[in-house]
């Protein structure tokens, strides 16, 4: 019973959405279902937030390593809830949009989340550089091709690439690095991306069928789950 009902729900909802595409009045059902997802996502976030608090309070209670940082996380989380749910510091008051310009909530995004997030991603530039130094040694033919393609694209997107091949006459403009980069992107890269995309899509179709028909059941978890 604990497993049969979920399997039936998956089969019923999945089949319904597949057939809805072929029946005119039901065509938009797929889009309507995404609205349900949005609402369920909030409750899923309740679970996620609860888990975050549970993990960090547990760390505090047991005085685990770096427990002091858990206090910072909890304060940050609580502060955002306080400021956002009650719309404290919002120039338009409780009726205004929570992300209204000038509100404390939005300023926290602009001056805390945004710098932290973009610096985290920017940091990857250094790690990618060091990883590529190790990985990009042209050990075999495939690695050499990868190296050349990456090099042309990198140069083609910088002023240096333009400068290096600016002397090439217009009649041979194809050999200018920026043009070669564009050609690689529109032909070789497009072909590879298409092969990958078609492969992924066929995989998604096969997995969807397995889920709807109840062959794939791992999402239900183990039997000990309640």
């Amino acid at each position: 019973m604990k497993r049969q009902i979920p399997l039936f729900i998956t089969f019923f909802v999945g089949t319904l959405l597949i057939f809805s595409v072929f029946i005119p009045p039901m065509e938009t059902w797929g889009e309507n279902f995404t609205l349900f997802f949005d609402i369920i996502a909030v409750f899923a976030f309740f679970l996620g937030a609860g888990n975050l608090v549970r993990v960090h309070v547990g760390k505090l209670k047991k005085r685990k390593a770096d427990w002091g940082f858990s206090i910072v996380t909890l304060i940050g989380f609580g502060f955002m809830l306080f400021v956002g749910l009650l719309k404290i510091g919002n120039p338009g008051g409780i009726a205004a949009d929570v992300t209204a310009p000038g509100s404390w909530f939005q300023e926290m995004f602009n001056y805390v989340i945004n710098p932290l997030q973009s610096t985290m991603y920017a940091l990857l530039a250094f790690f990618v550089a060091s990883a590529s130094y190790r990985a990009f040694r042209a050990k075999n033919r495939e690695a050499t091709i990868l190296l050349i393609a990456a090099f042309v694209i990198l140069l083609g997107r910088t002023p240096l690439g333009m400068l290096l091949t600016a002397w090439i006459p217009d009649s041979l403009s194809f050999f200018q690095i920026p043009n070669m980069a564009v050609w690689i992107m529109n032909s070789f890269n497009l072909a590879g991306q298409r092969a990958i995309l078609i492969g992924i899509s066929l995989g998604v179709v096969a997995m969807s069928l397995r889920l709807i028909l109840g062959v794939e059941r791992t999402y239900l978890g183990g039997d000990d789950n309640g």
């Binding site: 909530f105 926290m108 995004f109 989340i113």
Partner: peptide, 16 residues
Amino acid sequence: AIFVGISAGYWFVVLF
């Protein structure tokens, strides 16, 4: 730690 707490709170409030 600041990033984890603040961004979790941010997305919770926005979703709410």
